[in-house]
Every structure is written in structure tokens, then in C-alpha cells.
Design a protein around this nucleic acid. Sequence first.
DNA 1: CTTTCATTTAACCAACATGTTAAATGAAAC
DNA 2: GTTTCATTTAACATGTTGGTTAAATGAAAG
Lengths: 128, 128
Amino acid sequence: MAGTDQLSAVFSALADPTRRAILVELAEHDATVTELTAPLPISMPAVSRHLKVLERAALISRTRSGKWRGSRLQGAPLRDAADWIDRYRRFWDSSLTRLDAHLAAVQAAERATDRMANDPKVPDNQEL
Amino acid sequence: MAGTDQLSAVFSALADPTRRAILVELAEHDATVTELTAPLPISMPAVSRHLKVLERAALISRTRSGKWRGSRLQGAPLRDAADWIDRYRRFWDSSLTRLDAHLAAVQAAERATDRMANDPKVPDNQEL
DNA sequence: CTTTCATTTAACCAACATGTTAAATGAAAC
DNA sequence: GTTTCATTTAACATGTTGGTTAAATGAAAG
């Protein structure tokens, strides 16, 4: 899973298209394993294990009602993931372009001193 | 990587704490492999491969300037990831609680007909 | 040219992920 | 109580990940 921390578990869980499809389904309604398996091209044991991964990441909770096990989407971990990504919004949000440019300039200046000291020749602000 | 699609590559790349640390660093300034390796507890070849993963996910671009290879954060894939997660905002954003409840009710009603037909006994709206 | 420096590639390894089919579990239905 | 149904666990195969050290590459410096 790469890391064992919560965020790693969540991103890792989201990295699989089958699991994302399951979450899409669960966003519409709670569902049993059989229901979740139906539209998928894999076996039920495989789905069962995907659900276990989602559960470990706390992306779903599970209920039991007789022979059926229901899965329900839990949003909290998604919020954590969204919060993490959001710190990089200035790298894609055009409305922040000006601010981004300004911050970059300030940071470049701040680093200038350090750089002069140990001369790491970083290709900073170089075009690709 | 689980899937080979773009989103899977991005989430998979983000699933590793070392790679997230690298992105944190790159959010402040472009950096060489040596600079990125310095604060990390792993070897330079290991970092080099992490960078390759990030590059495959298009989360960074790379420049070359003499013997140095610079890495630069690219935000676009993060926006894609953020957009995907954002579709689930109603599952954690309390300001959408009312709407969420309403949508859930509507959807439950819509499904009711189908459910009656093949009786899948879903533990819908069940407490955990 | 030879050496040095930054980085990548190669070869290897242990751990994990994802799928399969077959067997086990556990509650429901008969 | 035996069978049936939903689900999980076991056992297995295969590919990927993430780390290592040692060798290769390629430009800079002497």
C-alpha cells in the first residue's frame, strides 16, 4: 500500500478503477456484495477483497442483516484527501495565477541567499 | 499501479508518503534529485525512481541543465484528482447535509420500484 | 584525456496487490 | 436438520512496488 498512514491508505484505495467504480455505485445507494459484483467483470471474492481495502481506508462502513452485508460510503477520508490536494490548488487554479507568480518570486528571492552559500545550481524557473 | 488510466496513476503516485513529501518540497521550489534526496531516509536511486513514477503520472516535469535534472510540480493531474473527489463532497460537507438527505430520499424512492421487482433485500439506510 | 559529479540503469530481493477456483462459514428457507 | 444462498477465507499464480548496492552514462572540471 506504499505507506500505512491513513492518507496513503485512502489514495491507495482510490488508485484502483474497480474500487472507484464501487464508490460511484455506493454514492447512489448502499449495496450488497452481490449487487456490487453484478456490473463488474470480476468474481465476487475479488469484490469482497476490494471492499475490505475500502473498509481499511475507512471509505466504507459495513452492516450485516441476515445473510447480507451492506456497504455504505463514508465521506470523511475523502475530505482528508481533498484537503491534502487542495494545498496545491494554486498550481492549477488560474484565478490564483497572479498570487502564484508573486509567491514564486518571493520564495525564489528567499532561497537566493541559501543557494549562494552551497551553490546547488538548481535549474529553477527553467522552461521545459 | 492497479489501473493504467491517468487517474489511477495519479492516485497511485499520491499513495506513497515519500512521493507526497517530494511534492511538498517541489511546491516550494524546483529541485534537483540530490536536493530532494538530502532530507529523505532513502538512497538516490530510490528517489530517482519515485520521480519517474511522479513523471509518469504527469505530476512533475523534468528539465536538464548540464549534469543537473530539475523537477517541477505540475498541478493539472491534481486538479483531475480533486475534481473526482469533489463529486463526493456531499458525503462530508455539512453545509450540504440537507441537500444530501433530500437527494438520498429521492434516490431511494426512485430505486424502490426496481427493488420490488427482484427483491435484493439491501440493508439500505441502516445504522451501523 | 582523466577525473569528478549528478543521475540513471541493472540486478536482485522481499513484500504486496489482484485475480482465479475451491472450500468454509453462517444465516435463511424448506 | 438439510439445503440453499450470500459472503468470506484459503491456496495459488502472477505482476508490481520499493528498497538495496554496483555499474553505466554523460556532462563539467582539472
